[in-house]
């Protein structure tokens, strides 16, 4: 699975696929863990293309969140579509997974030093 990683300073911006469920959660976990390994300071997962995330997908987000903490890095998800936001609320993830409206907001908060890299053409 290709998460189209982009780097901005020490941050990695990854883009989630259209659907993450039990059928592709394993590949998603491998790919997102690889993105985390590449990140120096922060991993931001852009969910703007994700129509639906079910239990398998959210579990991976929690695992990567824990791994990022262990590696002293930050992790956040951004740009949740309305249905994904609903599942996030229903699943009770607000104390576990940090959400930002946009990738820009996430980088500005988690790793402001990397912001110029994000804004560069």
């Amino acid at each position: 699975m290709d998460l189209k990683d982009k780097s901005a300073g020490g941050a990695i911006i990854a883009a989630a696929p259209g659907r993450i469920d039990l059928s592709n959660a394993d590949q998603f976990q491998v790919a997102l863990s690889a993105s985390l390994a590449k990140a120096g300071t922060a991993l931001v997962l852009d969910l703007s293309a994700a129509d639906l995330i079910t239990s398998g997908g959210f579990r991976v987000l929690v695992i990567v969140q824990k791994a990022s903490k262990a590696q002293n890095k930050s992790f956040a998800i951004t740009s949740l579509r309305p249905l994904v936001k609903e599942v996030y609320d229903i699943g009770g993830f607000k104390h576990l997974l940090v959400v930002f409206d946009t990738v820009h907001d996430a980088v500005a908060k988690l790793d402001p030093d990397s912001l110029p890299g994000l804004d560069a053409p």
């Binding site: 239990s55 959210f58 929690v62 824990k66 599942v87 229903i90 699943g91 009770g92 993830f93 576990l96």
Partner: peptide
């Protein structure tokens, strides 16, 4: 679901989801 995959993982119960 959040509890069942984090703090309460392996506590032997499941979720509505």
């Amino acid at each position: 679901l959040a509890d069942s995959v984090s703090m309460k993982e392996d506590w032997g119960h499941s979720s509505n989801v």
